[in-house]
Write a protein that binds this DNA or RNA. Structure first.
Lengths: 137, 137
DNA sequence: ATAAACCTTAGAGTACACACCAAGGTCAAG
DNA sequence: CTTGACCTTGGTGTGTACTCTAAGGTTTAT
């Protein structure tokens, strides 16, 4: 698959794909005779992974580290690879905990709001939220 | 509280605080006679909220929207405020689901790895993971 | 065989989120 | 009453992650 079709399928630009290649996040499976990038199934999976990681707040540098868990196994001990994996897993757990608190706060706000057509400053619940305590606790 | 002490308590720079003020994310409670910024308890709470939101991957623009749920109530209907809140809550829920899948995948990798001193490519489990399917599914 | 629609590299430009610096005002301690 | 640590505004610089442009080569359809 050439870069244009590949980019279309994933909803990203061809520039982004070339940028990721340059920064060692995604290398196309091969090149055609004319030097065109040729992306395969593995590249598709890896790119989907990158996009999902990005979507939940990982930087490209962090994503690169995640991807290298796989590549590092050829140069490092089981111990090191396991430690890196656990470290990343715990980071993810922290973010989940943080997001769960956000979700809880937003749920409280949403559930208690009447949802009517009147101006919201008359909403009995919102009126009591004179500061963002409900979101900060 | 002057900007220096406030910044110290939160572990951010004074530059960051002035930047947030300029971009309407956090306005100090008042100014002293000399024109110094004076931050109070409400500012502290709001800043903590901003930092936590940032930490889980929200952009400053998104955080501004979250904060405006509070301010918007004076100009918009309960209905609109509730919808915005629900929309943001659902976005958070999606991120939690995604992160949970990440956590699961990383747990599988970590738990099955022997963790020994030998090169990781001899680890019976990792050897079978010839691609990153474990992370992409 | 030529136009349109693709592709190539290299390099410059942009938006976000700060970080740093200059020139100068304010304030508490010695 | 001055030194040093704070504060002010305004402007410039930096890293990240793209985004666009220029100049040109390739492929497909008519």
């Amino acid at each position: 698959m050439k870069i244009g079709e590949f980019a279309n399928q994933l909803g990203v630009s061809t520039d982004t794909l070339r940028y990721y290649e340059k920064h060692n996040l995604l290398t196309p499976s091969s090149r055609t005779g004319a030097g065109y990038r040729d992306y395969g199934e593995a590249a598709l999976k890896q790119m989907k992974f990158i996009l999902r990681a990005k979507n939940v707040g990982f930087s490209l540098a962090e994503i690169k580290e995640l991807l290298q868990i796989k590549f590092k196994k050829h140069q490092h001990s089981c111990h090191e690879v396991k430690n890196l994996t656990i470290q990343k897993r715990d980071l993810v757990a922290e973010r989940i905990a943080e997001l769960t608190r956000f979700h809880q706060s937003l749920s409280v706000l949403a559930d208690k709001c009447c949802g009517g057509q009147e101006p919201a400053d008359n909403c009995s619940i919102l009126t009591t939220l004179e500061d963002i305590d409900g979101l900060t606790q």
